[in-house]
């Protein structure tokens, strides 16, 4: 019975309610600027989904290098979720994602 309760509890932590969080994209150095740079993204996504989205918006080809950072400071692990990053690093209610064509704070 206890195991059943635990499984139920795990379920609820594994599938939290979907939330959209604002992500603010900011170019660094020579990286092209986006026309629209504020997007709401499903917080359950891993960070690599954000990278994929950004590449699509920029029309970036797979081989072209693109480096992404949070708060001009560090590159998160690609399997970090947007919700985890947002809770820990959001600034004024937005998660700031910097992108660059060369390695900057790696």
């Amino acid at each position: 019975m206890q195991a059943a309760n635990a499984a139920e509890a795990l379920q609820s932590y594994s599938k939290p309610d979907p939330v959209q969080v604002p992500i603010f994209f900011k170019a660094v150095g020579n990286a092209p600027i986006m026309k629209q740079n504020l997007y709401k993204i499903n917080a359950l996504n891993p960070f690599r989904a954000v990278i994929r989205f950004l590449r699509k918006q920029l029309g970036w080809k797979a081989q072209e290098p693109l480096f992404t950072y949070i708060n001009l400071a560090f590159a998160p692990a690609p399997d970090d979720t947007v919700t985890n990053l947002f809770k820990s690093f959001a600034t004024e209610g937005r998660l700031i994602v910097n992108y660059s064509t060369t390695a900057a704070w790696g």
């Binding site: 690599r48 949070i70 708060n71 400071a73 560090f74 590159a75 998160p76 692990a77 690609p78 399997d79 820990s88 690093f89 704070w105 790696g106």
Partner: peptide, 29 residues
């Protein structure tokens, strides 16, 4: 795997985690 299976990629990810931890602690790296 998210990374190319090389020691270099692993080292880069490791340094990234150290910086993220630094930011968690102090709000900067």
């Amino acid at each position: 795997l998210l990374l190319s299976p090389s020691t270099d990629a692993c080292k880069q990810a490791f340094m990234g985690q150290l910086k993220e931890a630094d930011f968690m602690r102090w709000g900067s790296t």
